[in-house]
Amino acid sequence: MILNITTSLKRGVLLVRVEGELDMHVAAEFRDAVDNALETTGVRHVLLNLQGVNFIDSSGLGVLLGRYKRISVLGGIMSATQIQPQVLQILELSGLLKIIKLYHSEKEALECL
C-alpha cells in the first residue's frame, strides 16, 4: 500500500493531490506531508483533490480532521474535490462534510476560495 501525495501552491491555497488508501498505515505520512507544506508555504487554505483515493476509514478521517483543526484556528478553509462515491459516503457519515467544502473541480474551488 503506497500513498502518493503532491502538494503545490495555487492562488494562496495549498493544493494536496492524494493517491492511495487513507488508512492508519499512511496517516502519519499524510499528516507530515501536509503540515510541512503548510509550514513552508505559510498558507491557511487547503484544497484536497481526492480523485486517487479509493479507500478511507476512521484513521484517514482523523488525519483530515486534525488538519482542519490546525488551519481553522488561523481562519483557513478546508475544501475537497473529485471524491469517489465510496469515500464520499464515509465523509458524509462521519459528519466531516459539515466542515469540508466540496467543489466539482480544482478550478471551481480555486476560483471560489
Binding site: 496517516a27 476509514d57 476512521s58 478521517l61 482523523g62 486534525g66 483543526k69 457519515l93
Partner: peptide, 14 residues
C-alpha cells in the same frame, strides 16, 4: 470516544 485527538472515535460506529 477516542483516546487520541487526531482520531475520530468512529471505529465501532462504522
Amino acid at each position: 470516544y477516542s483516546s487520541d485527538p487526531e482520531r475520530m472515535g468512529l471505529g465501532f460506529a462504522f
